[in-house]
Amino acid sequence: MSVLLSEDFTFIVQGITGREAVNLTRECLDYGSKVVGGVTPGRKGREVHGVPVFDTVEQVTEALGYVPDGSVVTVPPAFTKDAVFEAIVRGVKLVVIVTERIPRRDVAEMVELADRYGARIIGPNCLGVIVPEVCKMGGIGGPAKDAAKAYTPGAIGVMSRSGGMTTEISSTLTAAGLGQSTAISIGGDAIIGSTYAELMPLFEADEQTEGIVIYTEPGGRMEAQLSEWVKENDSRLPIVAFMAGRFMDSEEMKGMSFGHAGTIVEGKEDTATEKIARLEAAGIPVVERIDEIPDAVKDKLGAKV
């Protein structure tokens, strides 16, 4: 098994005729994903790599005769909220938002609406989700042949605030013989649809997953939430964390954002030092190097048996 995606998972691409969306569609199809339609207002009747394009999500569901399982949203920031609302209201249950630089208020509204409709959002500012050799939803891992190089099936769940580092970490795990059950680029913004703690129950319930690796950064409360979740739920899954951006702890970097919009040190709680201490207090080792992750995972898996 896996989380979020499966072999029969169907999805659409909103904004499918955009330059990046065209590439992403090609990559997903090549990987074997079921991209069943696309939406760009005013472009009904076109095709993108054989995928039919419609004006609205409603038209897609009418043409298909069913509601697709997911949607990848890659439209400009000013139009993202409307596109996401459209998908959710039309019954789509998993929305991956690729778009960067969406105002926080819009994101907060989308997340709240998703909650009311029982839908889940991944992102914004993310590369999507991949279940190795089964389904790739979004640009994660790049072209199918590159994705196949980095991602292999296995027992480790990966969650990362950085899209690129999702691939770097998975590739490092793969090289050490540790495959991935599902890898999720959760997004780099201050507000995202699904945090580590919100995704943990899915991995917890997934038989294939035996351990978790997370990539984290300064800024926000997500790591603190994860620490609390782990303590409260007596999780069966060992977790290994990597924390980037330790250099941001220095006083002169305060208030500067690096890497992602949500990566900013405003108070003491945001610093790498503070987060590392919290994670370690919850029994989550934080390694200093990406290449230390496989051994740390093996240690944890070994200790569990």
Binding site: S162, G164, M165, E217, F242, F247, F258, T263, E288
Partner: peptide
């Protein structure tokens, strides 16, 4: 260096 997360990771790696 690049990209978002990679830059953070590499800056740390150089300094460490």
């Amino acid at each position: 260096i690049g990209a978002g997360g990679g830059s953070l990771t590499l800056t740390d790696a150089v300094r460490s």
